[in-house]
Design a binder for these strands. Structure first.
Length: 474
DNA sequence: ATAGGGTTAG
């Protein structure tokens, strides 16, 4: 069975064909090669072999599926340890369905298996299901909670703004005497997500232990999320920054339109040799674009070693917001050339950015091509926000009938009748009051109220500059 | 085998 069916060989060959753009991927590939050699020599597929193998599969989602097949062959999938590792790989690769199937198939579920499930649900934006799982875990016969469980639950509570449950968990953490930094960081992040900045500061100030950079980052991020930029910058002055600290700092600079401070952060980044961190580089591109320095943004973009989908999308969006639709479109085309060589592919946000850029510049044909290609070529279903953007584009270009037709198809499903869609259609109807009335007829009082509420929530804050009180520690 | 802090749109 070992030599005649070299599944791992094919699996690793497949990995070698696809490019490995980051050093992490490369080391994972090394691990896969090692596994292949052992497997070729006829080493038994012991259950212990799978967790490290699955760890290496994080970089290569298609391999996880094949590792799973090997686990079934050797019955390793019946052991909770490799099964949990498998669940986690599926979760990290965005394969929710497979992850849940693994959990359902487990006959023994310890705390770690439950934790991995809850973490998976939170990661996939299903906080309600995470809470249901949490309650199921608490039911008779379930394994006990651990700090891991409570950390994931705090995240679920933040995304639901479930203040009561979150506070109950906070109380439980105190009752357990769990005063770890990880837990405190999760609690700060929970209060921050619920808009309770004072509570976040209280947790931070009550800590007795030595603080690490992650908890400072959480506090800085909390200030920024709650628009307390001055405080964000003063906390920033208290910590030796890492890549994440600087990324936070940049988002504050972008929000405040503070170019001089953004440049300082850029300098600190270079001095610390953090320029291989793609996320940080993406924030640099965004900061320059938001502060009006499009060319500096472009230069920074070109210098990113391992551009990911966010890098490309940020630059496309930068051109779009500067009214440079043609440049945005060109970059989108170039991105797709890179896609053919296997590096990156556009996601839903990319398409929205392209549609928006085309809309601002009146590129109707390009916008239409983009809208239809996202489904047919890339298998991404447009959400209501894509429809809204496309309808807006068509309306601005005077293609009211085309917009109307799209709108009528769209709202056959009431879930699509979002405020953005209605506003876009009403905008398109400006030149045609009969259509505007027809459009308005679809809306009940509830919808109108919802629309106005949504508009209120999304109102842009005014852009003003202010002096920043401290300098960054280098 | 599971947990904390980060970037993209409207």
């Amino acid at each position: 069975m070992k030599r005649s069916r070299p599944v791992i060989s094919r699996l690793v060959a497949h990995a070698a064909l696809s490019p490995s753009p980051s050093p992490t991927d490369a080391s994972h590939l090394d691990a896969l090669h090692l596994f292949r050699r052992a497997h070729r020599r006829g080493a038994p597929l012991a259950a212990e072999a799978f967790p490290p193998l699955l760890f290496a599969c994080r970089s290569f989602p298609s391999l996880g599926r094949q590792a799973h097949a090997l686990m079934v062959k050797s019955a390793a999938n019946l052991h909770p340890v490799p099964a949990t590792a498998l669940l986690d790989v599926y979760s990290r690769c965005g394969l929710l369905r497979y992850a849940l199937d693994v959990f359902d198939g487990m006959s023994v579920r310890d705390s770690i298996a439950w934790n991995a499930l809850i973490s998976c649900l939170v990661r996939h934006g299903l906080p309600d299901d995470a809470i249901s799982a949490f309650r199921a875990m608490a039911a008779d016969g379930g394994p006990p909670f651990t700090g891991f469980t409570l950390c994931s639950m705090l995240k679920a509570c933040a995304s639901l703004r479930a203040v009561r449950l979150g506070k109950q968990i906070h109380a439980r953490v105190i009752g357990d005497g769990n005063d770890s930094l990880v837990m405190a960081t999760a609690i700060i992040d929970f209060y921050s997500g619920c808009g309770m900045i004072q509570e976040a500061f209280d947790v931070f100030n009550r800590l007795n232990s030595e603080k690490d950079v992650a908890i400072y980052n959480a506090l800085i991020s909390a200030c920024i999320q709650n628009r307390r930029f001055k405080e964000a910058f003063s906390v920033l002055g208290l910590v030796r920054p890492n890549e994440i600290t600087l990324t936070c700092a940049l988002s504050a600079c972008s929000e405040c339109l503070s170019l001089p401070y953004g440049k300082q952060v850029h300098c600190v980044m270079v001095r610390h040799g953090f320029d291989s961190d793609t996320t940080l580089c993406n924030a640099i591109v965004d900061m320059y674009a938001k502060c009006g320095e499009l060319t500096s943004g472009r230069i920074s973009f070109e210098q990113i070693h391992h551009k990911n989908v966010v890098s490309w999308t940020s630059m496309i969006a930068a051109y779009g917001s500067h009214g440079r639709g043609v440049e945005a479109w060109k970059l989108f085309k170039r991105m797709q050339e890179e896609e053919i060589s296997g590096h990156v592919s556009p996601n839903a946000v990319t398409f929205l950015s392209v549609l928006s850029a085309c809309g601002h510049s009146g590129l109707v044909d390009e916008g239409r091509e983009c809208f239809f290609a996202m489904q047919s070529k890339h298998g991404i279903d447009p959400g209501p926000e894509h429809y809204a953007c496309f309808i807006y584009l068509l309306g601005r270009a005077g293609r009211i009938e085309e917009a109307w037709k799209l709108y009528c198809d769209l709202i056959l499903n009431p879930d699509n009748l979002t405020s953005a869609v209605c506003i876009a259609m009403l905008n398109a109807c400006k030149a045609n009051m009969d259509l505007a009335r027809a459009c308005g007829q679809w809306l009940g009082a509830e919808d109108l109220r919802r629309m106005m509420k949504d508009r209120g929530l999304k109102k842009e804050a005014g852009n003003s500059q202010f002096e920043l009180p401290v300098a960054i520690e280098t």
